[in-house]
């Protein structure tokens, strides 16, 4: 009996050694342990044995069975591992081949600059205030204290729909609207599209964008104007940025100023971006002229405020060193794709 068992195990060992696949090992299992398997048959033949022999032989048979199962398991693991290895080998790919890149769209650089500015001021508690792109002469000029014969009113400068309606040449047209619409105190930023009679060339475009900023409240000072814009400049052009305020003149503000920022390209040493001066003019601003507040029905004794206007294209062109404004309106995908 023991001999038979040893023989079966011997046979199983031989067969398992030959097995190359999981299917082969399964075949061996059937040959040994299946319904007609060699071991199964030995076990069946035990019926004629005495109880003592049965006990002895039962133990031997179980041992043999356990041994076989261990052998089988071991072999199966090896075969499986090899099969996996073979599969991996077959499935190995060239990881240096290019990926299949999903296209992610890009926002227009003008939008990006506007969003950046809006974001800076939004975090300082400013709201966006939007007004029409076509507005009245009153909101555009008269209400902004613009002299009757100001050159900007000329039909060679501003587009007219009729004597009283223009395509706004600046976002400042929203100021009087804001004054009438909003409740003091307020801090608003007014981004938008503007129009001027400029034939397109490298630096001019009949369509362009501005961001206006307007604060009205009690105790709003020119120092607040300086601080707010200095903060914006540092956020927009980097924490090292310095600002310089120079006196200037605009009809809608007094005192008025132009703000220069230290050149973000060279840091102020002088380069081609700042034309050697170390400074770049970025915007015009000032304390809102009392006449402008009066036009919107604001108590000029109680309230003061400031206003700022900046050109989006100019900032975009400086920031990204774009040398021709027309590129912004050509919408060549190779251009837009650069701003991702």
């Amino acid at each position: 009996m023991q001999e038979k068992l040893d023989k079966v195990l011997e046979y199983a060992k031989e067969q398992l050694e030959k097995a190359a696949t999981i299917a082969d090992t399964e075949e061996v299992r059937i040959k040994v342990m299946g319904k007609k398997g060699q071991l199964t048959q030995i076990l069946r033949g035990m019926g004629s044995l005495s109880p003592e022999e049965k006990k002895e032989m039962g133990m031997a048979a179980n041992k043999a069975k356990a041994k076989f199962e261990a052998m089988l398991k071991e072999k199966a693991a090896i075969v499986k591992e090899e099969a996996k290895k073979a599969k991996f080998k077959a499935e190995t790919i060239d990881v240096t081949e290019p990926g299949i890149v999903p296209k992610i769209g890009v926002k227009h650089p003008i939008t990006q600059v506007i969003n950046e500015i809006v974001g800076i001021f939004r975090s300082m508690g400013y709201a966006v205030y939007e007004s029409p792109e076509v507005d009245t002469v009153f909101n555009t000029f008269d209400g902004l204290n613009s002299p009757e014969f100001h050159p900007a009113r000329d039909i060679t400068d501003t587009f007219y729909i009729d004597d009283d309606i223009v395509l706004r040449p600046h976002t400042s047209s929203g100021e009087v609207r804001a004054e009438k619409d909003l409740q003091v105190p307020y801090k608003v930023i007014m981004p938008g599209r503007c129009f001027r009679c400029d034939t397109p060339d490298a630096t001019h475009s009949p369509t362009f964008h501005q961001v206006e900023m307007m604060v009205v409240g009690e105790n709003i000072t020119m120092a607040d104007l300086k601080g707010s814009l200095d903060h914006m400049a540092k956020k927009l052009f980097g924490p090292e940025t310095k600002t310089k305020f120079r006196p200037h003149h605009f009809p809608f503000t007094e005192p008025s100023a132009e703000m220069d920022v230290s050149c973000f390209k060279c840091g102020g040493k002088g380069c081609n971006v700042c034309k050697g001066s170390g400074w770049i003019e970025i915007l015009g601003c000032g304390m809102t002229h009392p006449h402008v507040h009066k036009a919107g029905g604001i108590d000029t004794e109680k309230y003061t405020g400031f206003a700022v206007g900046m050109g989006v294209e100019r900032i975009a062109m400086l920031k990204y060193e774009i040398d021709d404004i027309r590129l912004l309106y050509e919408n060549d995908m190779r251009f837009i794709d650069q701003f991702k």
Binding site: V128, Y129, V188, K226
Partner: peptide, 29 residues
């Protein structure tokens, strides 16, 4: 007009830099 005269003679660069103290009543659209 005299506010401006004082400002420019005092020097814009000598003005302090602060932030507005007010909160805004305008709502973000």
């Amino acid at each position: 007009d005299y506010v401006e005269e004082v400002a420019r003679m005092y020097g814009y660069n000598n003005l302090p830099a602060t932030l507005p103290g007010c909160t805004s009543r305008a709502v973000f659209p």
